[in-house]
């Protein structure tokens, strides 16, 4: 089911191509007070108001990732009034989000919506949540312009990457790999790996909601530079390795 929020987001997406400047957010909703009476979906296109931020933005998650097999309510506190729903699919693929805190019957997960660090509680133990473990960790040091991929704590590789320019920095904090997209026209990368975070300086970019992503880049000269609009451009080998990393895997971006 596509809600009014998603419709608004899609409308913004198709009309805003090429936009770089700060403009009204793609969509927003305030939980149960949303005009339609329906809860907003927690997607990369939405902004969730009154949702608490991740309280340990640079802490390591334990790799627990969950996939809702049906849309689940998201609340600010365990058992609290729902303020959003977490759909079973994100960007055409299965939703997988990292668990950052647990209480009996409830799991606090990172959400792919704005603001950065948005986290909410979803019910567990209802047969609608598939739980798994990602042994991977992705770490990005924007100062060193370096990406490190770890599996079970052991480094699989470190690559020099391109990060956000000073005016459009790559946002720091804890996020996760949201999706794996293969564009029909691989203009600059055969694979795009959006994460849960968004640019803090651009509300929209290229018609999209300002989602940060890992992807390749044709010119090797960019690696090691702070030249992007927030994305992390990685060498082909890094992209190959990142393509194997499960959705929901935690990504730590430090400045």
């Amino acid at each position: 089911m596509v809600g009014a929020v998603a419709v608004t987001a899609i409308a913004t997406l198709v009309t805003g191509c090429g936009g770089k400047s700060k403009s009204p957010s793609t969509s927003s909703a305030a939980g149960s007070s949303a005009p339609t009476g329906k809860l907003p979906e927690a997607t990369t296109f939405t902004t969730l108001k009154n949702i608490p931020k991740d309280t340990a933005a640079l802490a390591s998650a334990d790799g627990t990732v969950v996939h809702p097999t049906a849309a689940l309510p998201v609340s600010v506190t365990p058992g609290g009034q729902p303020v959003a729903t977490l759909p079973a699919k994100e960007l055409g693929g299965p939703t997988w989000v990292p668990v950052v805190e647990t209480k009996p019957g409830w799991e606090r997960v990172l959400l792919p919506s704005r603001p950065n660090g948005a986290a909410g509680w979803i019910p567990s133990g209802n047969g609608k949540v598939e739980t798994a473990h990602s042994p991977y960790d992705v770490k990005v040091d924007t100062s060193a312009r370096r990406l490190t991929l770890l599996k079970s704590g052991k480094s699989l590789g470190t690559w020099t990457v391109a990060v956000g320019a000073p005016k459009t920095p790559t946002p720091t904090g804890r996020t996760f790999i949201l999706a794996s997209l293969a564009p029909a026209k691989a203009t600059y990368s055969p694979l795009i790996l959006p994460v849960g975070a968004h640019s803090d300086s651009l509300d929209t970019f290229g018609g999209g909601p300002g989602t940060v992503a890992f992807h390749g880049w044709p010119q090797k000269s960019v690696f090691g530079q702070a030249v992007t609009h927030g994305c992390v451009r990685v060498p082909a080998d890094a992209l190959r390795q990142l393509s194997k990393v499960p959705l929901g895997t935690p990504v730590q971006i430090s400045g």
């Binding site: 191509c17 794996s180 997209l181 293969a182 564009p183 026209k185 970019f205 290229g206 992503a213 609009h229």
Partner: peptide
């Protein structure tokens, strides 16, 4: 997923 998203 055969898809695209304008990212930053």
């Amino acid at each position: 997923v055969p898809s695209d998203l304008p990212v930053t």
